[in-house]
Design a protein around this nucleic acid. Structure first.
Length: 403
RNA sequence: GUGGGAUUAGCUCAGUUGGUUAGAGCAUUGGUUUGUGGUGCCGAGGGUCACGGGUUCGAGCCCCGCAUCCCACCCCA
């Protein structure tokens, strides 16, 4: 037997119901905020991710499905969604056109990781990207959008926010931090020694307890912001408070992708195990320029659909459509004909096997039909059909041509 | 990539110190009180015990390998 590749799952029946329910809910909310759908390819030039996500990140460093195609191009399956959207934005010259452009997307992402619950090699994200708005109100809108989606789906969460600073305050902070970490170098873990070289900010969210103890006195990003970043962060908190969004400031919150600046946020659930981040995002004002576009402020987020699917409270399934059966083989043809008529507007399922009324009712109940319709001996003789509303428990005998 | 646990019917799981034909519940399916369901009763089908080796007279059970899932690390959504 051939089975699916490790960390790559089929989505069917009940899972698919959840999946589409999520997509339609998230789409509805994104459209309410004025966002438009965008679809970008699953396969992109490897350089796109190296330049945007950053070579120091684990995603690019060791988790990409990368290969040389038949035209000798270095390509890879997208490990995240933002880079492709930004690439499309620039390629369509929307950076030159100016104005505001708001997109949402959803689709498969690929990372060669060791699978776990809530962590797959092929997984799905829903994300939005906003270009051309530098106001921190847009950052807040991102957070409120995620909050709205989660509320619609009945999902509880904790929101953590932080500010990563911008070009005028981040570099000097980084120097300060590197200096601090190098002073306590002897006590820190191997990973942190590597991080100091590659991406020093990442030491802050090291999970190693010994490291964390050493970093208690480390300079905090939040205390080293320039006045612009500081004001924006204060404004962001105020907007969230005004709109009744609960948050906690996590000064160690660092986004895993290099392109973020200023606002960073993460939505966390306590109910799905260790892969607890269900949505994350922030501002990335420098990325468009990095990818050869005109400097354009931007902010966005992404949600992990498989992680959310575990948490979604599905609305109650309502009885729907017609079940049509016969108690005599001679009536099956009539049942099929009726079904074809009903299918112009409704769901109709025919049982091709003659059986007694009780069994028809059982079968109709099993498929959650609203109406159980049966043609028995009497009905066959009179040109009628017996119809029972399984919800209201009322029944009637109708002329077939009137049904 | 590192460490740990699990894998028996479609699903959830029993299976004694290695010993005849591997069980249950649910699901599926047939019958039934001769035209009233979601909640009766009786029956049936369904398993190379993940896969590949080994030890043994004999392996679902012990040993080795391998795959997948789960957990922790790592990473992140």
């Amino acid at each position: 037997m051939i089975s699916s590749l490790r960390g790559m799952n089929d989505i069917l029946s009940e899972d698919y119901e959840r999946f589409t329910y999520f997509i339609s809910t998230a789409t509805m909310v994104a459209q309410r905020y004025g966002f438009h759908f965008i679809q970008t390819p699953l396969l992109e030039e490897t350089a796109l991710f190296k330049r945007s996500v950053g070579e120091s990140s684990d995603i690019v460093g060791k988790e990409m499905y990368q290969f040389i195609d038949k035209g000798e191009n270095d390509v890879c399956l997208r490990p995240e969604g933002t880079a492709g959207v930004v690439r499309a934005f620039i390629q369509k010259k929307l950076d030159r056109a100016g104005g505001i452009h708001r997109f949402f997307y959803h689709g498969a992402m690929f990372r060669y990781e060791r699978p776990q619950k809530g962590r797959l090699r092929q997984f799905h994200q829903f994300g939005v990207e906003s270009f051309g708005v530098d106001s921190v109100y847009e950052d807040a809108a991102m957070i409120m959008m995620v909050s709205d989606i989660l509320k619609e789906l009945g999902i509880g969460y904790r929101l953590q926010i932080n500010s990563l600073g911008d070009n005028s305050c981040m570099p000097s902070y980084r120097e300060k931090l590197v200096k601090f970490v190098q002073e306590c170098k002897d006590g820190i873990c191997e990973d942190c020694i590597r991080r100091v070289e590659t991406n020093p900010i990442r030491v802050l969210d090291c999970k190693n307890g010994a490291c964390q103890e050493l970093y208690v006195g480390a300079p905090k990003l939040i205390h080293n912001l320039c006045s612009g970043c500081n004001d924006d962060f204060a404004t962001l908190k105020k907007i969230l408070e005004n709109n009744a969004i609960l948050y906690e400031v996590n000064t160690n919150l660092v986004r895993g992708l290099d392109y973020y600046s200023k606002t960073a946020f993460e939505f966390v659930s306590d109910n799905i195990g260790s892969q607890s981040a269900i949505a994350g995002g922030g501002r990335y004002d420098r990325l468009v320029e990095f990818l050869d576009g005109r400097p354009t402020p931007a902010v966005g987020f992404a949600m992990g659909i498989e992680r959310l699917m575990e948490l979604i409270v599905m609305p109650e399934i309502k009885r729907d459509g017609y079940y049509i059966g016969a108690m005599d083989d001679k009536a099956v043809d009539i049942a099929v004909k009726i079904a074809q008529k009903k299918r112009k507007t409704d769901k109709a399922v025919v049982d091709y096997k003659a059986k007694n009324l009780k069994n028809h009712l059982k079968a109709a109940d099993k498929i959650n039909a609203k109406f159980c319709c049966v043609i028995g001996e009497d009905e066959l003789n009179n040109g009628t059909i017996w119809v029972k509303d399984l919800e209201g428990k009322t029944e009637a005998i109708l002329k077939i041509e009137e049904f």
